[in-house]
């Protein structure tokens, strides 16, 4: 099978020092992969190179076998980090999702019947149809993530790229987002995401790519999650535990816990239960 995405010998930097050096990476149709690495490892940069919004200084990025050469990647949809969104902008959920149809739609300001049909279908599929008329600020973190996922899906992409979709949401919401992505992947959607959550990625994503300036390792979490590989990726002492079929990753404390630093912490107090309560 030919790869959907190819990064061949890609080097890129914002200044004199490259952020990514000689990266080779292939992503095949139907794959579900997570980019892991510390802050500054080049995860977002690699995603932007894949999208074609950044151009490599050396090497090439190909989508469906064709080098981008300064073009935006075709049939690729992107879900940005939620913290980059202007939540006070006057738009409803439906408005945001309709933006995903901007390539296919008519030049008229109003949405076509087909636009409305596709948006309704995707909102239904992501179980947020009842939120269509709501302002984006009035949603929970999980609902906000679904809205931007819906915008990506109405564009009918071959590849879905998500920048830290589980950041800033609680554990349960993060898990539901990854279940949703797994469902989409089962329907043959290729998914590439970046995340800081090693445990969540280890449990839900079948292929992980450890990145820190270059690809340190890639493969199924069972093979890649080792003390040695993760310590090299995060440049720290990482500990991998295997418990009840789960992979749990923790950074080893640097020789002390809070008791070493705070020998006499100010104690808290539990309020007394209310009388008759």
């Amino acid at each position: 099978m030919d790869p959907l995405v190819e990064l061949n010998g890609v080097t890129f930097g914002y200044g004199a020092e490259p952020v990514l050096r000689n990266v080779d990476l292939h992503l095949h149709p139907g794959q579900f992969a997570a980019l892991l690495g510390p802050s500054g490892a080049g995860k977002t940069t690699l995603l932007k190179l894949t999208l074609g919004t950044l151009q490599p200084q050396q090497g090439e990025v190909c989508i469906h076998g064709k080098a981008l050469q300064g073009r935006i990647a075709p049939h690729v949809a992107y879900v940005p980090q939620l913290e980059t969104v202007d939540w006070s902008f006057p738009v409803t959920v439906e408005h945001v999702v309709l933006m995903g149809r901007v390539r296919e739609t008519t030049p008229w300001p109003w949405p076509s019947r087909e636009d409305r049909r596709r948006v309704a279908e995707v909102l239904e599929r992501l179980e947020i149809a009842h939120l269509a008329g709501r302002h984006i600020r009035d949603l929970s973190g999980g609902q906000q993530q679904r809205v931007f996922l819906a915008r990506a899906l109405v564009a009918d992409p071959d590849l879905l790229v998500l920048d830290e979709p589980t950041t800033g949401v609680d554990m349960r919401t993060a898990e539901s987002i990854l279940h949703l992505l797994a469902d989409l992947n089962r329907q043959r959607m290729t998914v590439l995401l970046s995340t800081h959550d090693l445990n969540l990625a280890g449990a839900h994503v079948p292929w992980v790519i450890c990145l820190n300036g270059s690809v340190v390792a890639q493969g199924p979490p069972d093979e890649v999650y080792t003390d040695a590989i993760l310590s090299e990726t995060y440049r720290g002492d990482m500990l991998v535990l295997r418990q009840a079929g789960l992979l749990l990753v923790h950074q080893k404390p640097h020789g002390h816990g809070y008791r070493d630093v705070l020998p006499e912490p100010v104690p808290g107090a539990r309020p007394a239960p209310a009388a008759g309560g």
């Binding site: 999208l51 074609g52 919004t53 935006i72 990647a73 690729v76 949809a77 992107y78 940005p80 980059t84 969104v85 202007d86 902008f89 738009v91 408005h95 945001v96 309709l98 933006m99 995903g100 901007v102 390539r103 739609t105 030049p107 300001p109 564009a155």
Partner: peptide, 22 residues
Amino acid sequence: FFNYKRLLFATFDPEVAGVYGV
């Protein structure tokens, strides 16, 4: 009028609008 959708997207999210073909 004729650039309503593209201008709206580019105003809301200029970095991402380009990825979607704006």
